[in-house]
């Protein structure tokens, strides 16, 4: 399988950053489950969800290669554009102080509170811990699968760098979780979402253009132009939103 290296690095980077954000959110809940309900339920729930997600990727990933590339680019590009713009919109609003930032420490405290309130398990098997870890890993993992398929489906061989990016993010977040044993609240989550939103919106726009046979100036290099374009537009939108919402000079890119 040949890998198109012009797309490969940005693809791997986009998948890595986007997956890292999702894994950080999942880690918060898994840590809460481990601390309150025990590590057996937390780890079996997480492992079961990861195994199911892997099966989904193995089932749908190869099937995508049998669909004509232009159709995949249009459909997946459209979904990727909607997904990226959704992240970028939220990141701009958070950076402008219009909506509150996502705080992993608050999320951890909320989760530990509700896990304590669920009461002790009846036997050796903690269904609450297993179900909570399974559910969060499935939810965040499905987003990762979507990201990997979406950024990897636009060209021949791009699923490989996209998967490598996601697996690297999983390993990094899992290692940090093992070492630190607390939520990764110092990760600049909104700045990451801002960058990922820009990258995914740029990829999505490019794939949609390819899907409807548009002629991109500079061919593949226009992905770089689109990235810079979305970055400029989103960066300019932050102060405009701040002024419109009357949130003053509050800077919240973190």
């Amino acid at each position: 399988m040949t890998v198109d290296w012009i797309h490969a690095w940005p693809t791997a980077l986009a998948a890595f950053l986007a997956s890292a954000v999702e894994f950080v959110e999942a880690l918060t809940v898994v840590l809460a489950v481990g601390a309150i309900r025990g590590w057996r339920g937390a780890l079996t729930g997480t492992s079961a969800a990861l195994a199911l997600l892997l099966a989904v990727v193995l089932m749908f990933g190869p099937a995508l290669t049998r669909i004509p590339l232009q159709d995949v680019q249009l459909v997946v590009g459209g979904l990727l554009l909607l997904f990226g713009l959704r992240w970028l919109r939220k990141a701009v609003l958070r950076a402008a102080g219009v909506i509150p930032l996502h705080d992993e420490t608050v999320a951890y405290e909320r989760e530990t509170g509700s896990l304590r309130a669920a009461g002790p398990s009846d036997g050796a098997w903690d269904a609450v811990g297993f179900a909570t870890a399974f559910k969060i890993t499935m939810l965040e993992g499905l987003e990762v699968v979507f990201i990997v398929i979406a950024v990897g489906a636009g060209g021949a061989g791009l699923l490989v760098p996209a998967s490598v990016g996601a697996v690297a993010a999983l390993l990094l977040v899992a290692a940090l979780g093992l070492i630190l044993h607390r939520p990764l609240s110092t990760v600049p989550e909104n700045a990451l979402k801002f960058v990922v939103g820009v990258l995914l919106a740029a990829f999505g726009t490019f794939w949609v253009g390819e899907g409807i046979s548009l002629d991109w100036p500079g061919a593949d290099w226009s992905i770089l132009g689109l990235t810079l374009g979305f970055l400029a537009v989103a960066s300019l939108a932050v102060p405009l939103c701040r002024r419109r919402a009357g949130t003053g000079q509050f800077l919240a890119l973190r």
Binding site: R89, A96, V208, G229, L240, A245
Partner: peptide
């Protein structure tokens, strides 16, 4: 295509901010 998408994004965040 890019300009339209960018304009939709800016309009949406400004509307939400308002």
């Amino acid at each position: 295509l890019f300009c339209g998408v960018a304009a939709i994004l800016v309009e949406s965040v400004l509307r939400r901010s308002g």
